[in-house]
Design a protein around this nucleic acid. Sequence first.
DNA 1: TCATCTTATTGCAGTAGATGAAATTTTGCG
DNA 2: CGCAAAATTTCATCTACTGCAATAAGATGA
Lengths: 222, 222
Amino acid sequence: MVPTPSRATAAPADADPAAGSPAEEGLRERKKRARRAALIDAAQMLVAEHGLDAVTVEMISAEAGVSARTFFNYFESKDDAVLGAEDSGLPEDVVEAFVAGGPTGRLLPDLEALVASLLRPHAEAHDRVVRAMDLMQQEPRLLQRHVLWMDRHKNRLVELFEARRASAPFSTDNELLTMLVLLLIRTALVAWEHAGYTGDPADHLPAAVAQLVDVVTHDLDS
Amino acid sequence: MVPTPSRATAAPADADPAAGSPAEEGLRERKKRARRAALIDAAQMLVAEHGLDAVTVEMISAEAGVSARTFFNYFESKDDAVLGAEDSGLPEDVVEAFVAGGPTGRLLPDLEALVASLLRPHAEAHDRVVRAMDLMQQEPRLLQRHVLWMDRHKNRLVELFEARRASAPFSTDNELLTMLVLLLIRTALVAWEHAGYTGDPADHLPAAVAQLVDVVTHDLDS
DNA sequence: TCATCTTATTGCAGTAGATGAAATTTTGCG
DNA sequence: CGCAAAATTTCATCTACTGCAATAAGATGA
């Protein structure tokens, strides 16, 4: 049997109108990208409709026109596909600025800058992230994967913190700082959600920081 | 015995949730407790030795002398058994104090008090928590479950925040506050771990708060 | 002590996520 | 075209987890 309409998606071939085609990208890379996107779309659509547990990877794979085994060549788990998790690393320049003790020289604003650059890629894949956020509310299990993602980056973050200590010493524990990063990410994303997903997630970062400062300093005041 | 008319179905009557009085405990409850403990011990021991993925629930069950099916009568998942997760709620008096705007009237210290009471039960089951913490470092997947636990309590926390708003208004978002609770819990636990698990996890809470204040206020100073 | 009701354990069958390996197809390129 | 590299698929297998029906083990009351 194998009713795979694999042709269907690949049909438009290279009918690229205009020369807008990403020249540097081979056909192979192209298809890979397309498949991945198709799988994420299928996963998010099906889960939104039937719920996380009612959707099997076979359904998702069938919807995307690939075998179930191929699915796992693209994602480590079903949940990953639903979240459409992309592991885009931190930009070089931002990292360099941070470890050098910049850009402002004060830890909290510099963390903010770091988080902003972590949030930026989320703005690009706007729709997918929005769908992922919505699904995360309905399916708390997905929030767990979000944390696993965090855990993967944790080592990298700790490296950055250690590196920065050399040029601009500070006393705060690495653990607290990573949790602070997580707090900022989450707060900004939720604020973005509450704002109806308008604009950029990073836009809500300053407000998050302001709130944090508020809570902590109120402690000292009154 | 007083002739109580309405006791159609088995009345749990006392049902003392606190494990304080073993005398009042029937043999059934006893065995249940013992089995549960045996399963947790077996799970933690085996995982410590062979790693999380190399240990099957069959091994754990066999080690504890029960069937694999029974295992799932006690735990929702393998990971839960390894963590030995207990869902002890917040004490009444602490909750009341918090929603009334106390005990200090300032949000951050009051959050600290709340977290302290969340950490206290961890001190009782000292050994198991220690082993769970160690395993969490080796097996990041377990950290996810820790978050699921958090998620379960999140609704309760949000209720508390909302209730407190009535008597002692504040502007901070619920999301930021829950993340702050998570940050304090995690920071205190890690500090406790670094201290060689001496004393109480809650002992390290003040230091965590101090660090947080430090990071945020340094922003304002320089 | 026995009869009985309730509750816990178990065996069995089945679903579904995830992985490894070999076979097959697709793509890149000279 | 024809060959080599890479990706997809098929197939077998493991394991976590669940529902159901049968059975064993406390609890209870006379």
